[in-house]
Design a binder for these strands. Structure first.
Length: 850
RNA sequence: GCGGGCGUGGUGAAAUUGGUAAACACAGCAGACUUAAAAUCUGCCGGUCGUAUGGCCUUGCCGGUUCAAUCCCGGCCGUCCGCACCA
C-alpha cells in the first residue's frame, strides 16, 4: 500500500535532528582544515514581526547556495540577524504605548520562530540585533575611530527634512522629492549635522565597480550613475570694469564643455551661491527673487514644470579668450550642491541655457557645427545642439573636434592661470544624523569649554535611556535632561550628550563583518568578503553603496581587512513575489484567503459579494494581496512553499504566487516520495554498474542541476528535477534495482538544496543512518554523461527534414553520406543540385541545394 | 531628457548564447479507476491545411549578415526599472 508523505510530521522531526546535531555551525578557521570558506549571506531582515513571502524566496535562494557549497566541501558561514533600529518601533511606541525595545525584541522572537519553521541551514549561534548594546557599542567604537581619522565631520547645511518622521534624510533616501519611508514631501532645513566623508572614496567606489564581475550589470550602472563622475574644467572668471571690491576675486565655475567657451553668453549663479547671499543683503529685489526660488518644490513634477527664472546682478566678468564681457545672472536652475554652484552658459549647446537665454533675450552663439551644415547659415532654433561636430567661431579652436577642443581649451586656461582640469562627482557626503530615539547614539559630548569631545572607548556603549516617552513629537533624547547631562571627558566640566542618533543604514553597512566575528579581526579577515550576497534590488544604491564605503573606511583605520576592498564579491538581486489583487463592490481590498473561487465567478467567502480580480502586484499589506507563509507552511509544509518560490520564474524576475502553482509543487513532493516508496523495504546496497538509460539520465541530471545552480538558474534546476522524477517513475518497472537505488540516491542529494526535509526523509528511506546534510555532492560518471550513439537533425536549406542516428565519433564524411541516404532527405533533394553539405560534429547537418 | 533591462503558446517559462523553437510546469480537453466526488494515472495540447504520413507559417515589427538567427548588426514599436535642471 503506497504511503503519502506528510510534511506535518516529517518536517519538525528533521528540524529537531538538525538542531540536535548542530549541523549548520560554521567551523572556526583553525578547525576548517583544507576546506575552503564560503560566506553566504542574505540581506538581514527588519523585524517587523511577520514573515512574508518575499522573505521566503530571498532566504530560500541563499539556502540553496549555502547547502550546495556545504555539500561541495566548503566551510560555510550562513548567519542570521536583525536590522532592528528604525522608525516603525517608534511609531508602534506612539500608537500602543509600548517601549520600542520591547516591541522590537518581541517581534524578533516571533519572526525567529517563523524562520525556524522554514528549515533554513542557518548558523544561529552568531545571531544579533543591531539594537543590542553590544552591537551598537561596537558601532560607536567604529564611529570614534573614523572620527579620529577625519572621516566624520560636522557642518551646518541645508538638509532634507521629513516633516512626518520629523527627521533628516540622506540624499539617497529622498525618492522623487519624498521621504523614502513616510512618502511625505521633503522640506529643506538648515541644520548642523554629522557627515561621513563618502566623497573621499568616490574615485575608489567608481573604480571598484569594475572589479565586481559577479554583480548584476544593472546595479553597477546604478551606482556609477549615482556617484556621477564627470571630468571637466574648473576656472575663474575675473571681474570686468569696476569690480565690487568687497566681494570675491571672481567667479569660480565648473564645466564639462570648455570647448564651448567661445559661445559663452552669460554667467549664472545658484540662488544659494555665497555671492548671491552677499548681494542680497542690500537688495530687496534680490531677496524677493531668492524667496521665489525657494518656493519651488523638489519633486520631479515641480522641477519639470518650474519655469526658469533669473535675476540680473548688473555685474560683468571678462571672457578669458576674447575682449568681451559677460553679464552675471542669478538663475534658479543652477544647483548649489554641484560643482561650484556657478556656471558659464553656452545657450547654443545646452538646452537649459538656451531656454533661459531666449526668455531674457541673451545672445545665442553657435560654436559647434554639425557636419553638413554651413557655418554662414547655421542657426539655433528651439533646440540646443548637443551632438558632435567641428568648432567654429572659436578662434584657436576652429576646425577641431569637440574632444580635442576640450583638451586645448583646458590647456590654454591652465597656462593663463585661470583654472585647472578637475573631476567632479555627483555624490555628496553622507549625512548620518537622525533626530530619533531608536537608533545608535553618537558617542560625543558637547562641552561649553572644549566644544565637541569624543567619548573615550572605555565609556562605551553609550546606552539609550530606558525611560522614554513619545507623547510629544520630535526626538525624546532631546527632552531627556537626565540622560543628556554628563561630564566632559576632557575638562571634567558639565557637558551634554549628542542627541542625534545614527542613520540605520550605518547599522547595516558593517553587520556582515560582525557576523564573521564579533571581535576577532583575523577571523573577520578569514571570512570576508561575503562570497555570495542575496537581496532585493531596491538596495542597489543605498545599502550597497554605504557598505562598500564603510568597508573601505574601516579598512583604513584597521578594523577590516579585505584585499579587494569590496565587502560583497558576488551579488544576486532577486525578484519580488507578486499576487493577483481583489476588490469587493465597495472598492475595499480583499485578501486572497477571503475569496472563494469555487463558483463560476469569485465571491467573498463570508458575505458572498462578487469579487473583482485586479492586476498582479507585489505582495503588500496596503493592497492586502499577501499570502501568509505560516498558513502555507501549515497547509503544505515549508519545502513546498520554498520550492514554489524557486520553481516558476527565473530568480531575478518576479514570481506570481498562485494557488495552482503551489498545488503543483505539493504534487511534485508526493511524486518524489512515491518513487522512493516504490523501492523494496530494504533497498539493495550493491552499487550500480554498467550502462542503462536510467543511469545516463540520472548522471546527466546531476550535471545539469549542478551547472544551473552554479549559474543561479534555480528554475531550470527545478525543471530538471521534475523531468528526472518522471524518468525514475517510468523506469520503475524496467530498470535494475541497483540503478533505481542509485537514481534515488543521487536525486535525494540534489533535492536537498530545495526541499531539505523531504530529502532527509528520502535519504532515510534508502537506509542511511546519517543525515543528508552531511552527504557530499554526488560525483558523476563521465562515461555516462556522453552518449555513444547520438541523434543528429538533418536540415535541407536550413529546414529540419529528418534526423539520423550515428556514432558520436563518426567522421563528418560518414555523417554526410548517411544524411544524404536518408529517405526523408532524398525526397527533398531529388532533382536538385547539392551545392554544399555542412556537418557540425555532434550538432547538426545542413544540406544546401539549389 | 540620460542610463539599463525586457518582448517566445491560453499562462509562468526553456533553448548547452549561432545549430531540431516551445523542455518542465500551470490552465484546458479527452479517457481510465470510482455508485459518485476527491486523489491518482494515461493521452492530447503554438497556428493552419489534412483522416493521416506530412506540408506551410510562427520567438513584438521591418530590414541585414549567415549554409543556419529567439541569439549577431541596423532601424522602428511597446513595456518595465533607475536617475534626473548634475552644467
Amino acid at each position: 500500500m503506497a504511503s503519502r508523505y506528510d510534511p506535518q510530521t516529517a518536517e519538525p522531526k528533521w528540524r529537531a535532528a538538525w538542531e540536535t546535531g548542530d549541523v549548520y555551525r560554521a567551523k572556526s578557521p583553525d578547525k576548517a582544515g583544507d576546506a575552503p570558506k564560503a560566506y553566504i549571506l542574505e540581506m538581514f531582515p527588519y523585524p517587523s514581526g511577520r514573515l512574508h513571502m518575499g522573505h521566503v524566496r530571498n532566504y530560500a535562494m541563499g539556502d540553496v547556495v549555502a547547502r550546495y557549497k556545504r555539500a561541495k566541501g566548503f566551510n560555510v558561514l550562513h548567519p542570521m540577524g536583525w536590522d532592528a533600529f528604525g522608525m516603525p518601533a517608534e511609531n508602534a511606541a506612539m500608537k500602543n504605548k509600548v517601549h520600542p525595545g520591547e516591541w522590537t525584541y518581541k517581534n524578533i522572537a516571533d519572526m525567529r520562530a517563523q524562520f525556524m519553521k522554514l528549515g533554513l541551514s542557518l548558523d544561529w549561534s552568531r545571531e544579533f540585533a543591531t539594537c543590542d548594546p553590544e552591537y551598537y557599542g561596537a558601532q560607536q567604537e567604529i564611529f570614534l575611530k573614523l572620527f579620529e581619522a577625519g572621516l566624520i565631520y560636522r557642518k551646518a547645511s541645508k538638509v532634507n527634512w521629513d516633516p512626518v518622521d520629523q527627521t533628516v534624510l540622506a540624499n539617497e533616501q529622498v525618492i522623487d522629492g519624498k521621504g523614502w519611508r513616510s512618502g511625505a514631501p521633503v522640506e529643506q532645513r538648515e541644520l548642523t549635522q554629522w557627515f561621513f566623508r563618502i566623497t573621499d572614496f568616490a574615485e575608489e567606489l567608481i573604480a571598484g565597480l569594475e572589479t565586481l564581475e559577479r554583480w548584476p550589470e544593472k546595479v553597477r550602472t546604478m551606482q556609477a550613475n549615482w556617484i556621477g563622475r564627470s571630468e571637466g574644467l574648473q576656472m575663474r572668471f575675473e571681474w570686468a570694469g569696476s569690480a565690487p571690491e568687497d566681494v570675491s576675486e571672481g567667479i569660480e565655475i565648473f564645466t564639462t564643455r570648455p570647448d564651448t567657451l567661445f559661445g559663452a553668453s552669460f554667467i549664472a549663479l545658484s540662488p544659494d551661491h555665497p555671492l548671491a547671499l552677499q548681494l542680497a543683503e542690500g537688495d530687496q529685489a534680490l531677496q524677493a527673487f531668492r524667496t521665489e526660488c525657494a518656493k519651488v518644490g523638489t519633486s520631479e513634477e515641480a522641477i519639470e514644470k518650474a519655469e526658469k527664472i533669473g535675476f540680473d546682478t548688473r555685474l560683468t566678468v571678462k571672457h578669458p579668450f576674447q575682449d568681451r564681457d559677460l553679464p552675471v545672472w542669478i538663475a534658479n536652475f543652477v544647483l548649489i550642491g554641484y560643482g561650484t554652484g556657478a556656471i558659464f552658459a553656452c545657450p547654443a549647446h545646452d538646452q537649459r541655457d538656451l531656454d533661459f537665454a531666449r526668455k531674457y533675450q541673451l545672445p545665442v552663439l553657435p560654436v559647434v557645427l554639425p557636419s553638413g551644415e554651413d557655418a554662414g547659415s547655421y542657426e539655433i532654433g528651439k533646440d540646443a545642439f548637443t551632438g558632435s561636430g567641428r568648432l567654429v567661431n572659436s578662434g584657436f579652436l576652429d576646425g577641431k573636434t569637440i574632444d580635442s577642443a576640450k583638451a586645448e581649451a583646458i590647456d590654454r586656461i591652465e597656462s593663463l592661470g585661470h583654472g585647472h582640469r578637475t573631476v567632479n562627482y555627483r555624490l555628496r557626503d553622507w549625512g548620518v544624523s537622525r533626530q530619533r530615539y531608536w537608533g545608535c547614539p553618537i558617542p560625543v559630548v558637547h562641552c561649553p569649554e572644549c566644544g565637541i569631545v569624543p567619548l573615550p572607548v572605555g565609556e562605551l556603549p553609550v546606552r539609550l535611556p530606558e525611560e522614554v516617552s513619545f507623547d510629544v513629537p520630535g526626538n525624546p533624547l532631546e527632552r531627556d535632561e537626565t540622560w543628556k547631562s554628563c561630564v566632559c571627558p576632557k575638562c571634567g566640566g558639565e557637558a551634554t550628550r549628542e542627541t542625534d542618533t545614527l542613520d540605520t543604514f550605518v547599522d547595516s553597512s558593517w553587520y556582515y563583518a560582525r557576523f564573521a566575528s564579533s571581535e576577532n579581526l583575523a577571523e573577520r579577515a578569514y571570512w570576508l568578503p561575503v562570497d555570495q550576497y542575496v537581496g532585493g534590488v531596491e538596495h542597489a544604491v543605498l545599502h550597497l553603496l554605504y557598505a562598500r564605503f564603510i568597508a573601505r573606511a574601516m579598512g583604513q583605520v584597521g578594523l577590516m581587512d579585505i584585499a579587494s576592498g569590496e565587502p560583497f564579491a558576488g551579488l544576486f538581486t532577486q525578484g519580488m513575489v507578486t499576487h493577483e489583487t481583489y476588490k469587493d463592490p465597495d472598492g475595499n481590498w480583499i485578501n486572497p484567503s477571503e475569496v472563494n473561487f469555487e463558483g463560476e465567478t469569485p465571491v467573498h467567502e463570508k458575505t458572498g459579494a462578487p469579487i473583482k480580480v485586479g492586476p498582479i502586484e507585489k505582495m503588500s499589506k496596503s493592497i492586502r494581496n499577501t499570502v501568509d507563509p505560516d498558513a502555507m507552511i501549515a497547509q503544505y509544509g515549508a519545502d513546498v512553499a520554498r520550492m514554489f518560490t524557486l520553481s516558476d520564474s527565473p530568480p531575478e524576475r518576479d514570481v506570481e504566487w498562485t494557488r495552482a502553482g503551489v498545488d503543483g509543487a505539493a504534487r511534485f513532493a508526493q511524486r518524489v516520495w512515491a518513487n522512493f516508496d516504490a523501492l523494496p523495504a530494504a533497498p539493495t546496497t550493491h552499487a550500480a554498474t554498467g550502462d542503462s538509460d536510467l543511469r545516463r539520465t540520472s548522471h546527466k541530471s546531476v550535471a545539469t542541476i549542478e551547472q544551473a545552480v552554479d549559474e543561479f538558474r534555480f528554475n531550470s534546476a527545478v525543471a530538471t528535477m521534475y523531468e528526472w522524477t518522471n524518468a525514475i517513475k517510468k523506469a520503475a518497472e524496467t530498470a535494475a534495482e541497483a540503478d533505481r537505488v542509485e537514481a534515488c540516491s543521487l536525486f535525494a542529494r540534489c533535492l536537498q538544496l530545495f526541499m531539505p526535509h523531504l530529502a532527509e526523509e528520502c535519504w532515510s528511506r534508502l537506509g542511511h543512518r546519517s543525515l543528508i546534510v552531511h552527504a557530499a555532492w554526488p560525483k558523476t560518471d563521465p562515461a555516462l554523461l556522453e552518449d555513444d550513439l547520438i541523434t543528429m537533425p538533418v536540415q535541407v536549406n536550413g529546414k529540419r527534414r529528418s534526423e539520423v542516428q550515428i556514432a558520436k565519433e563518426a567522421a563528418p564524411k560518414d555523417v554526410e553520406a548517411l544524411a544524404l541516404a536518408d529517405p526523408a532527405v532524398s525526397a527533398h533533394i531529388e532533382g536538385k543540385t547539392v551545392k554544399k553539405v555542412i556537418v557540425v560534429p555532434g550538432r547538426i547537418v545542413n544540406i544546401v541545394v539549389t
